[in-house]
Design a protein around this nucleic acid. Sequence first.
DNA 1: TGCAGTGTTGCTTC
DNA 2: CGAAGCAACACTGC
Length: 292
Amino acid sequence: MPELPEVETTIRELNKNRAFKVLNARFIDVWTDSPKLIKKPKSFKFFKEKIKNKKIKKIWRKGKNIVFTLSDNFYLLIHQKLSGHLLAGKWTREDSQWRPKNPKYLKDRVNTYIHLMFFLNNGGMIALSDLRKFAKVELLKRPEIEKELSAIGIDPLEKGFTFSKFQEALKNKKGEIKKVLMNQQTIAGIGNIYSDEILWEAKINPLRKACNLSKKELKTLYLATKTILKKAIKTKGSSVVDYRRISGEKGGFEKILKVYRKEGQKCPRCGAIIKKTKIGGRTAHYCPNCQK
DNA sequence: TGCAGTGTTGCTTC
DNA sequence: CGAAGCAACACTGC
């Protein structure tokens, strides 16, 4: 689910959460019914011991990775993968024993899949809801997180994401442009939904080879990438299936999707019928008429 | 009823 | 080497 705009929305909302302050709070307890979500350290017991009393100093992201900078040079890394999303709420003493059968914080059924909860010393609770349990949670030291994040390409929201950087990243890439856009080592944060939407915006066919795009087309694509991602952040992301804001509310971007999951419908720009195909094992949606 | 499909990633296989 | 397939998991929709 969550691509760059959803992850950006999550960290922005965590940073300015009103119900309780997430920044500067300390972890006092962790609960899970799926210890396999915690990849490092492998033992949940060890993870729980290590994170206890650590203070949240910063919340940021690179691509789709959420990072909590903690005290003592520790970092909490969360990748939500397909169906994960973070939720935040208040908790009471009894809740630390709470098995979330009865989702009392949560308004709709998607949010019943809570598998991990962090309890903070100021009454705050951060939960990971994840239907498919693919999410990755890691507690790392500085060299480890640097190593992990350095393998990821440039984030389109970074200041350094200039046209020449974009051009450089796409140069010599032989694969289809949609596949290249989704490759996290090339550019970080774009997944299936936004690659479809960006390519529609840029009027570029997803099947085109990246290395065959003209400079003019690359420029259009670069601008469309920024436009679409910013617009999606403004509307708090897309809740096509189960992404939620930390309050449990849905995002608003899925209401204005142009092609993603719209096969058989009319292209909002030219009226031709939107097609669905497979690219690199993923579904792609595009307008065969106006995406050249 | 059963099985293909689902926003991701990384590992295995050819 | 790169590309393709599949596994991790649980549910929906045809």
